[in-house]
Every structure is written in C-alpha cells, then in structure tokens.
Amino acid sequence: MSAPGELRTDVHARIEAAFRDAGVTGFLHATDIDTGRQVAVHADEPVVLASVFKVPLLVAFHRQAAEGLLDPTEPVTLPPGDRTTGPTGVSVLLDEVRMSLRDLACFMITVSDNTAADVVLDRVGLEAVNATAADLGLPGTAVDGSGRDLLDSLFTDARASTFGEVWARLDEPGMLDRLRALDPLRTSHSTPRDMTRLLGLIWRDEAAPPAECAAMRRLLGLQVWPHRLSSGFPYDDVVVSGKTGTLLTIRNEIGVVEYPDGGRYAVAVFTRSLLPIAVLPQADAVIGTAARLAVEWLRRP
C-alpha cells in the first residue's frame, strides 16, 4: 500500500513521461472543482496563452453584460475584406456579416474565430480584460493585444508577410528566439493554475452572475475540436468543455471534464513542441492523455 505522497509523485512522473514521449514540454494543472484537490506539473510557470486568451475575454464580456455596460444582443455589421486572419468562422467568410455580439462570442469560443474575438475585444477593451483577471485573483495572467496585434508581431519578428512563410522559416537558427509571440514574457500569458482557477469560478457561478456563467459553460461545451482534451476522455457519458490555444509550436487546451457521478475537474494543459511541424497528432493527443492521468488520479478515493 503506497502513501498518498508516493502516488502523487507517481502521477507527476507519468504525466512528465507522457509529455516527453510526445516530444513536448508540458505544463499542467488539474483540480477537483468541488474539493480543491489538485495535480500540478510546472503549474506556476508562465505559459503562452495563444487563443486561450479568449476565455478571460469571454468572462470580461459577460461581466460587462451583467453590469449593463454592453448589450450582448446588439447587432454588429462586419464588412467583407477587413477581417483578422484566422482559419475558421467569420475570418474565412467572403461577404458582409451581421451578427449579435454574443453570437460573435459564440464563434470566438466554439471555433476560435479570430475576427469575432477581435470585435468582442474592441468592445470590451484590453484594460477591462486585465482588470477582470486581476479582480478574479489571476496574478499570473495578462492579455497584451488582439489577434491582429499578435499576427503583426509575428510578421515583424519573422520578417515574413504570410503565416505560411512564418511556418516555413521556423527552422532557421534563432527564429524561435526572435518571435515575441512564443515568449510568455513578451506576449499574452498566464499559468496553468490561474486558468483552472478561472474555470472553477465559471463552473461554481463565481466569475459572474449565475445566468452569465451558465451561458459561458454552454459555449465552452459547444467547442468543436476533438483532438486534444476531448481525445483523453472517449466516454459517451462524460462532458468535456474547453478552449484550445494554437500558435506554431504552442498547443494548449483548458477545460472542464464532468463525470455522471457529479465529479467535475478543471484542467489546463499548455505545451510547446520540439519539432517545428504543424501537423503533430501526438502533441495534440498528449493534452488529452495528460489530462486523463491527472483526472483519474483526482478521482481515486
């Protein structure tokens, strides 16, 4: 019979080994939302948020809606042409779009729509997002710009004019060093522990009034991506809600896993791959694997 301390070491070692086998450096925090029991692997290190920044933005948006500072049903017209680069959602549409702010927030979370996110960010304001993070007790979290700003910084640092070109030149010596967007000290950043705290607040109705928290949970539950957190929990009766973050060698997802017995766990996994390769299924899948190792440990009596 092992002491709890030994089991803990064991789960840490297994999570580290899973990261190593997948060729990534990994950072993880997982916590039982109701008991506070936790697993931490480099959980207080600063990490690059990438699209995970859309979650604190979502929370700030809903808090402003609750305070009456904005009307979530207000329609916004987006002319064609002037769109933030991105692989999904309004970013790839060709014609004029008219949507409410909250539907833009929906695309921002469910398909990581960058144009939608930048419109929401414009409305909410960067300062308000950071003030929300500070107010909610997330000292390691800061959002320092929009999706458009991030792409501009990448082009400047890589001396490239398309995102494909940045990828193609990622191999060049010193390139990874030069890109501010991949350095947690020089771009929007957080820590795994801050992010599970934020998810816990949303799931316990503490991040905003209950109706707003329910709306946020709904959106995170509608996220489409199956390859990361979700892949670790291939069970029909388990709910996985989450938000990915993807930027070159950075692959992240934060989310909540809910079991039919009522157990619910907030997990934040941030990775950085050694190989400068865009399609790296093992690096996506290890996010699910590491999360499952952590959640299974949290579920042991």
Binding site: T88, L150, W225
Partner: peptide
C-alpha cells in the same frame, strides 16, 4: 547555408490562433 525551404499547408486545427 539556409534552412531547407519547407512547405507548410494550413489546416484549420493547426492554423493561426485556432
């Protein structure tokens, strides 16, 4: 001399800020 030119085709799941 230089890193070999790589061709990286964009897929939505690995695209910019997915």
């Amino acid at each position: 001399d230089a890193a070999p030119a790589r061709r990286v085709v964009q897929r939505p799941a690995s695209g910019f800020l997915a």
